[in-house]
Design a protein around this nucleic acid. Structure first.
Length: 468
RNA sequence: GCGCCGGUAGCUCAAUUGGCAGAGCAUUUGACUCUUAAUCAACAGGUUCCGGGUUCAAGUCCCGGCCGGCGCACCA
C-alpha cells in the first residue's frame, strides 16, 4: 500500500473537545472535519469500531461503522501506532464520548513495531533513552517533561530579550578550550590538519562581544565537558550565559533570581514548587550567604580564606578529603564547602565570596582582595548558576592565567588554559561587566520535577552498543 | 574509572531448593451494531543480553564480557 504524501487537515483534538463540549450524549453536530494523528487504542464490536487517536494537542475517539465508514473492514485491522488521517462528523456517542464518525480515512504511516504494553507503557531505561520516539509514544510523562523543557527555553529567551539582551552565537569548535576549568573533548579538522576542542564554555567569546560594544548579550547553547555521567551530569549540556556591561555581581544576582523565579511563574504559576515530594522555594529575594560563613557554621569554628592552610587541610581530613599539594587555602575552603554545605542548600540560595584561587576570571572584592565578587546559586542541593563581576584588567588576567598554568604543571587536571587573544581583547577595554551562567537542564529538572537529567534531555548521552 | 543491583516473547512482568520457560497486552484468526486498558474463543510467538565453566540437569550457581539503574569520584 502506497502511503500518502500529504493530508489536508483542519482540526485538532483539543479544539474539538473544547468546541463541542456542549454536544449531549447521542447528539450529532452536523459539522464535518478532517483530523490526523496516531492510533492509540482500537476496539471492534462487530459492525462498529471505536479507536482512540492522539495528535499533538490531545486525544479524540474515532467512531467507525460498517454502514458509514469506507473500507470498514480494513479500518478494524489498523495497528496500534499507525498514523491515520480521517474525515468525519463530530458526534457524541450514546455513552458520552466525543467522537469523529469516520466517513473516509487513510493510513498515513504504518507502525511496523509494537511499541509497548498499552497500559504499562515502556519502563526499560535502555529502550526509553535509546528509542525516545517509542518512549514518547508510550509514556505521557515523557511527553510532558520534554514539553516542559521547551517551555523553559522559551521562557528564558523571552525574559532575556525583554531585559534588552541580544542573542548571539559563538564558536563551538575552539583551538583553545577555555572559559572554565574542565576537561574538553578533542576533535580534528581535516583540511586545516589541526586539533579542535569542543567548547567547555562560551564565556571568553561573549566578553569579547561586550568589548566590541554589545552591551548585553546572551547565548543559549550546548557546552561539552569530558566528564563522568550521573543523574545530574550529561557530557553535553545546555548553558545560558549572559553578560551585562555596567553591572556588578550584585546586579547580576538580582537578575538571576528574577529570571529563575520568573521561569517558574511563567510555567507553573508559582515560585513555591514541589520537587521530588518536597516543597522548594524559589521566591525572591534569595538569601545571600558567604562561603566562609557557611563553612564556619558547619565546622562550628570560624574559618575563612585567611585561615592557615594546615588547619583547613586538617578539617578536610576529617571529612575524608585528601588535600592535593597544589591546593591553597582558597581551594581547601571551597572543597570544605562542597563537602559540608552544598547538599543541604535546598531552597534557592546565593553563596558568595569565592576565593580568588578558584575564580581566575572574577574580579577581586575591594573589601577583601583574597575573595572575589562572585556568586553561585544552589537549589535542591546542587549548583544552578554561577556569576561574577568580570575581571577586566589585562595585566591581572594574564597573571591569573599564569597561575592556572602553574597549577597544571603541578598536576591539576582541570585548569583553565591561557588565551592570548582574550587578553588582547581585554587590552581593547572591557567595561565593568557582570556575567552569569545557568545550567538550563537543571532548571528544566526543577520545573519538570525530574530527579534525573536524562529525563529532560530528549537524547541523552549513552554508551554506544558494542559487540558483546 | 570503582562498588552495589539488574537484563526472560514486540511491551510489562512471573518461574519455589538447580528439575519440561509461563501470563497479560500487542500481533494473527474467529464471534459481537455505542465501546472506554471493551469482552469472549483460538493460533502463533524464545540465542532467558553475549561467551565460557560446574552439573545427570542452568533463566537460576561460578568466571569473563556487553548494556543499563543507583552510589562514589569528576563537574554545572
Amino acid at each position: 500500500m502506497t502511503s500518502p504524501y500529504v493530508f489536508a487537515h483542519d482540526a485538532y483534538a483539543a479544539d474539538l473537545q473544547r468546541g463541542f463540549a456542549h454536544l449531549s450524549d447521542g447528539e450529532e453536530s452536523g459539522h464535518s472535519v478532517r483530523a490526523a494523528g496516531r492510533l492509540m487504542l482500537l476496539r471492534r464490536q462487530g459492525r462498529v469500531a471505536f479507536a482512540t487517536m492522539r495528535d499533538s494537542s490531545g486525544e479524540i475517539q474515532l467512531f467507525a461503522l460498517d454502514a458509514v465508514t469506507a473500507a470498514f473492514e480494513e479500518f478494524t485491522h489498523l495497528h496500534l501506532g499507525d498514523w491515520v488521517g480521517v474525515a468525519g462528523e463530530v458526534v457524541r456517542t450514546k455513552r458520552g464520548e466525543l467522537s469523529l464518525k469516520v466517513t473516509s480515512w487513510e493510513r498515513l504511516a504504518e507502525a511496523l513495531h509494537n511499541f509497548g504494553d498499552k497500559w504499562a507503557g515502556i519502563s526499560d531505561f535502555d529502550l526509553r533513552y535509546r528509542h525516545r520516539e517509542a518512549d514518547l509514544w508510550a509514556n505521557d510523562t515523557t511527553r510532558t517533561t520534554l514539553r516542559r523543557r521547551s517551555d523553559v527555553l522559551r521562557s528564558l529567551r523571552e525574559r532575556c530579550w525583554a531585559a534588552g539582551f541580544v542573542e548571539v552565537e559563538t564558536p563551538i569548535l575552539n583551538a583553545i578550550p577555555t572559559g572554565s576549568a574542565a576537561r574538553p573533548f578533542v576533535t580534528h579538522h581535516q583540511a586545516l590538519d589541526s586539533a579542535f576542542y569542543l567548547r567547555v564554555a562560551p564565556e571568553l567569546w561573549l566578553k569579547r562581544l561586550v568589548v566590541g560594544g554589545f552591551e548585553r548579550v546572551f547565548e543559549l547553547g550546548r557546552v561539552f565537558r569530558n566528564e563522568g555521567l550521573s543523574p545530574r551530569h550529561n557530557p553535553e549540556f545546555t548553558m545560558l550565559e549572559l553578560y551585562a556591561a555596567y553591572w556588578n555581581y550584585a546586579d547580576m544576582m538580582s537578575f538571576t533570581e528574577e529570571l529563575v523565579a520568573g521561569v517558574a511563574l511563567d510555567i507553573l504559576g508559582t515560585t513555591e514548587i514541589d520537587y521530588q515530594g518536597r516543597r522548594l522555594s524559589l521566591t525572591t529575594p534569595w538569601p545571600r550567604r558567604s562561603m566562609d560563613e557557611l563553612v564556619s557554621e558547619a565546622l562550628d569554628e570560624s574559618v575563612s580564606v585567611h585561615t592557615e592552610r594546615a588547619t583547613l587541610v586538617h578539617h578536610l581530613d576529617t571529612v575524608g578529603v585528601e588535600a592535593h599539594p597544589s591546593w591553597g587555602p582558597g581551594r581547601c575552603l571551597s572543597e570544605l564547602f562542597e563537602h559540608l554545605c552544598e547538599s543541604s542548600l535546598w531552597d534557592a540560595t546565593f553563596v558568595t565570596g569565592h576565593p580568588v584561587e578558584i575564580s581566575p576570571l572574577a574580579r577581586r572584592d575591594p573589601r577583601d582582595p583574597e575573595v572575589t565578587e562572585r556568586f553561585e546559586s544552589f537549589v535542591a542541593g546542587r549548583e544552578l548558576s554561577n556569576g561574577f563581576s568580570e575581571l577586566n584588567d589585562p595585566l591581572e588576567q594574564r597573571a591569573r592565567f599564569e597561575e592556572q598554568a602553574r597549577l597544571a604543571s603541578a598536576g591539576e587536571v582541570e585548569t583553565m588554559a591561557i588565551d592570548e587573544d582574550y587578553i588582547k581583547a581585554l587590552e581593547w577595554g572591557l567595561p565593568p561587566t557582570a556575567g552569569l551562567g545557568v545550567g538550563v537542564d537543571r532548571v528544566a529538572m526543577l520545573i519538570a520535577d525530574e530527579a534525573n537529567i536524562r529525563e529532560v534531555i530528549a537524547f541523552p548521552t549513552l554508551k554506544p552498543l558494542r559487540e558483546s
